[in-house]
Design a protein around this nucleic acid. Structure first.
Length: 645
RNA sequence: GCCUCCAUAGCUCAGCUGGUAGAGCAACUGACUUGUAAUCAGUAGGUCGUUGGUUCGAUUCCGACUGGGGGCUCCA
């Protein structure tokens, strides 16, 4: 007998070789039916794999993230089986579970897979589930594994096998399909009740741009048909929040083929929104001791040779602009830091002057690969809420911490609760990608880790994600469709001060080198607005709303009074419009609701007589009558609450 | 940049297997003078993204280009 410790702490005895499934059966039949895998001493196993020694066991179902990923991993095998059955002689790359479903990278040879083929594959998958084929685990020697895939002619599996140590290799079989796989898997294919192929895409083998591009098939499966339906409905809902769709509908921004791809045009309403955000940040930065500066949109080639950006990005940038007579070269500025370094150098600095915090809403231009452009989140021209803090080495941590506070304050005011702080360090395997000495890097990385720790940020650490000049702390948020984007960023840089020979006089009357901190709480206004739109589904907080009010006269007779009300609100810096069309009030209200106008002020006979307005709030409905003064007070108190300054 | 899908009126879309286009909304005109999510009627609006080719004939089939979507690679 062996002792099995369950998650509730209870210890039960089972015969040696008991399986997760059998343990579940001993608890309840329902649980046994739903067990997808078992976590044995922290490792996820097949629920059918015998447990030979005392162990801590957690039974995993669809409700556990690891249960889901096991389910989807098995589904990837099922899809591969279906595809192999329909298109023989295909070769398989890898097929892992992902956040929502799974994919399989497949070399289909000449065959081009399209949406039209999806139905057939889905049908085949569901057909195969009816057979309830068990997923069978088979430990196998490396030689035999190589033999099998050589015979099958799957060069990708052979490529994978190259890196696997003999003795730890396992195959999994289900039905007529055999895959190199370390598992674990669900008991049998019968658990899968609904399958949907989502899309196909190209993906380079091993993520290497130089190797062959395989067809990546994305799909998702569920243990119940109903869950698939719900998932698809949620996706539809998310699409409604897409900033590209709302940006067009609410007339916030647009793109023009003639202007150029990735170059956003900010429409009047979008500009109003953006300017309010800028104003918010300006205020916060003044309070935090920043000095605004302005620098030009271009800079001479020499500036970027000095900064090192020319060497690193010169060939991949927008190519330089040349002056007609002297043939001097200027680059569109891809970042503001070199300009700010030159501002630092305009006069000798004392240790007493530091930290010097130079802030600029700097518009920068970067050549992004055409396939990478995406709405406002990835563009070729954008404005950073940039600043560079020049400080003494002993001030780095304090300054860094203050910036974290500013970022958190910003996110909180805008209602972003769901973000992750990512500590981006350099790739220890590939140090040649970065500039600067090991010693400086280690100091910088340490400063970030400590500051993040002191602020109790929940962080993830990513190796190889650092900027080429220094490590950074990035604040990541998700868009409506779950894609991750970097918003705020804070970066320590010991390198640029070196390259620009920045100095200050210390208390010892010696020359010292300052440290730079690059930071942008929004990151870029464009990306921030994109994520903000999706976050609030276009229903902006009142202080940001491009159309805060609409004055809606019941008929032409009340246009004068409506104008009076409107003028009064304008004086109070409240933005909106009057709807003077010859339409019924129901129509005016509907149009204002669709435009997501925060407040509708309806004026007719009784409002005019009593000098009041009838207030209707977007998405909520009629709030009743009040005087204009009372409305203004109500309005301002809401702004004070949400704006938080 | 690469793979793949897509491109019809200002917007959302219809137009089966080739015979030069239609709806709703928006716009404009007129009537209605309106009380909390769409008043009625009329008018106008498109070299069917661009460009080659196949064809007697192409919005429809094929190629290229441009732009967009999804992904890969990249992201100072």
């Amino acid at each position: 007998m062996i002792k099995i410790t369950l998650p509730d702490g209870s210890i039960r005895e089972f015969p040696k070789g008991v399986t997760g499934y059998e343990i579940a059966s001993s608890i309840s039949e329902g649980l046994a039916r739903n067990v997808l895998a078992a976590k044995v001493n922290g490792e996820v196993w097949d629920s059918t794999r015998p447990i030979e020694n005392d162990a801590t066991v957690q039974l995993l179902t669809w409700n556990d993230p690891e249960g889901k990923s096991t389910f989807w991993h098995s589904s990837a095998h099922l899809m591969a089986e279906a595809i192999e059955a329909l298109y023989p002689n295909v070769q398989f790359g890898i097929g892992p579970p992902i956040e929502n479903g799974f994919y399989y990278d497949i070399d289909l040879g000449e065959k081009q897979l399209s949406q039209d083929d999806f139905a057939a594959i889905e049908k085949k998958m569901l057909e195969l589930t009816k057979e309830k084929s068990a997923f069978q685990r088979q430990p196998i020697s490396k030689a035999e594994a190589i033999e099998y895939f050589t015979q099958k002619g799957d060069k990708y599996k052979l490529d994978l096998l190259k890196d696997l140590p003999d003795g730890s290799i396992t195959f999994y079989h289900q039905g007529n399909f055999t895959d190199l796989c370390k598992g674990p898997h669900i008991p049998n294919t019968g658990f899968i009740k609904a399958a949907k192929l989502m899309n196909v895409a190209g993906a380079y083998w091993r993520g290497d741009e130089k190797s062959k591009q395989l067809t990546r098939v994305y799909a998702i499966t569920f243990p119940k048909q109903k869950e698939l339906t719900e998932y698809l409905e949620r996706l539809e809902e998310a699409k409604k929040r897409d900033h590209r769709k709302l940006g067009k509908e609410l007339e916030l921004f647009a793109f023009s083929e003639k202007v150029g791809m990735g170059l956003p045009l900010w429409l009047p309403k979008g500009t109003l929104l953006r300017e309010r955000l800028e104003q918010f940040m300006r205020k916060a930065q003044v309070k935090a001791g920043y000095s605004p500066v302005v620098t030009p949109h271009i800079g001479s080639k020499e500036l970027y040779v000095t900064s090192g950006h020319y060497e690193k990005y010169g060939a991949d940038s927008f190519q330089p602009i040349r002056t007609p007579n002297e043939n001097e070269e200027f680059f569109l500025k891809p970042m503001n830091c070199p300009h700010h370094c030159e501002i630092y150098k305009t006069k000798p600095r004392s240790y007493r002057d530091l930290p010097l915090r130079l802030a600029e809403f700097g518009t920068v231009y970067r050549y992004e690969q055409s396939g990478e452009l995406h709405g406002l989140t990835r563009v070729r021209g954008f404005t950073q809420d940039d600043a560079h803090i020049f400080c003494r080495p002993d001030q780095v941590k304090e300054e860094f911490t203050k910036v974290i506070d500013l970022v958190i304050y910003t996110f909180k005011t805008l209602g972003f609760e769901d973000y992750t702080a990512q500590i981006s360090l350099r790739d220890p395997e590939n140090k040649a990608k970065y500039i600067g000495s090991d010693e400086l890097w280690e100091k910088a990385e340490q400063a970030i880790i400590e500051a993040a720790h002191e602020k109790n940020l929940t962080t993830v650490t990513e190796l190889g994600e650092a900027a080429f000049y220094g490590p950074k702390l990035d604040f990541m948020v998700r868009d409506a469709l779950g894609r991750k984007w970097q918003l705020g960023t804070i970066q320590v840089d010991y390198n640029l001060p070196e390259r620009f020979q920045l100095e200050y006089n210390g208390s010892d009357n010696e020359k010292h080198r300052p440290v730079m901190i690059h930071r942008a709480p929004f990151g870029s206004l464009e990306r921030f607005v994109a994520v903000l739109i999706e976050h609030c589904a276009g229903n902006f907080p009142l202080w940001l709303s491009p159309e805060q009010i609409a004055v809606l006269p019941i008929s032409e007779k009340y246009h004068d009074y409506a104008q009076q009300v409107y003028d009064r609100l304008m004086q109070e810096d409240i933005r909106g419009y009057i709807d003077n069309r010859d339409e019924k009030i129901g129509r005016k209200i509907r149009d204002a609701e669709v435009k997501k106008v925060s407040y509708m002020l309806i004026v007719g006979e009784k409002e005019q007589e009593n000098e009041i307005v009838s207030v209707r709030k977007h998405g909520e409905g009629d709030l009743g009558n009040m005087t204009v003064d009372l409305f203004v007070n109500h309005f301002k108190s809401i702004i004070a609450e949400t704006f938080g300054q």
